[in-house]
Design a protein around this nucleic acid. Structure first.
Lengths: 191, 191
DNA sequence: CAGGATGCCTAGCGTTGCTACGATGTCGTC
DNA sequence: GACGACATCGTAGCAACGCTAGGCATCCTG
């Protein structure tokens, strides 16, 4: 392990992250359909094959972006939950933060929930950021609530449906706040 | 308008539907990624360009399949709603029918809700089948309920989220019945 | 029966994700 | 310090994609 090979490894790790951020920026400015391996390679100023020395394929790159997204989502939800004054308002705050996240970073949200990825959900090898994001919903309910995971799943499903259906125009994008209010008041009395 | 041109028009309409059903069958057996214009053309025993004389592009074919899907979904939901013994059970029956539809025809469901299509939602030119399906949810609530459309949107969002998240393994596919029960009992007391 | 229009297929364009292969340069050893 | 082994990277290319231009045949009309 010479110093040179260490430097190489550092450069390699740096380039790895460079690819991920380039893919994300390209997706956020021009949409995922503009993220081709050629354009991405040009953006990071390397040839196409180097992408495949870092990732198994395009799906793996999308997965890497999605994973970063889950970390950010978890942090975003946590901030909202902890900023809530009364515990009864935590769920509402987290739900609103979730919808915020989905509408403000649509490309990132697509990578996390719509595009095909290699990520494993709800299993033993689920990456920690995914669990962390999900647990923010669970934490809105009392620990002695035996159904809190079930509650969290339904809330999450409803929010995801609202986000994606309104984004694609299948439900009017205007009424999100009313829908959110209806959803939370229906669930919130049980914590 | 001779009889011959009428026959041609009939044949053309027949072929139009043939393309749609072929696309749907191919998607249901091998997934939408296997539905290419080449394979589809081979399947209907015509050359590629004839597809473009019937549809503006691949998205338009997917849209046509989706439109058929909405008709079937509306009929499926209506059947479930009308079969419900008490009016209080109608919502539960419709919701269960919705999830049934999504899990039993995943490819069709994808065309309707996930794949890019040309369909216009929630506007003046929304195709009737789309409105019909949505109205089945609305009809589960009392006509004097001024928020019934809002309720329907939230319910639909939650069901869509449950369907798509469980299909992609993001929530465990096993607990659908419990989630459904939780969702309905939370909403059902207001009709 | 000729003329014009219609319908269809062959062939090809540009782009996609991905990969085989050769050149270039670096490393450890004698 | 020279040399063979090794890793790294770019050029070039493959098969498949959605889509379209152009020509050939066929059919209806006057």
């Amino acid at each position: 392990m010479s110093a040179i090979s260490e430097r190489r490894e550092r450069e390699r790790a740096h380039r790895h992250q460079l690819i991920i951020t380039a893919a994300r920026e390209l997706a956020e400015t021009e949409g995922w359909e503009a993220v081709t391996t050629r354009r991405l390679a040009e953006r990071v100023e390397y040839s196409q094959p180097v992408l495949y020395s870092h990732f198994n394929g395009k799906d793996a790159i999308v997965s890497a972006v999605a994973l970063d997204g889950f970390s950010e989502l978890a942090a975003h939800l946590r901030r909202a939950r902890q900023a809530a004054r009364e515990p009864g308002q935590a769920l509402r705050a987290v739900c609103r933060a979730y919808l915020e996240f989905a509408t403000e970073r649509p490309a990132l949200y697509q990578a996390m929930f719509i595009l095909p990825t290699d990520l494993k959900f709800a299993s033993a090898e689920t990456p920690p950021p995914l669990r962390a994001a999900f647990n923010e919903f669970v934490s809105c309910f009392r620990p002695d609530n035996e159904q809190r995971e079930l509650f969290a799943e339904v809330i999450w499903s409803a929010l995801h449906g609202m986000a994606v259906l309104s984004d694609s125009g299948r439900i009017p994008p205007g009424g999100q706040e009313e829908r959110l209010d209806f959803l939370v008041t229906r669930i919130a009395d049980t914590q």
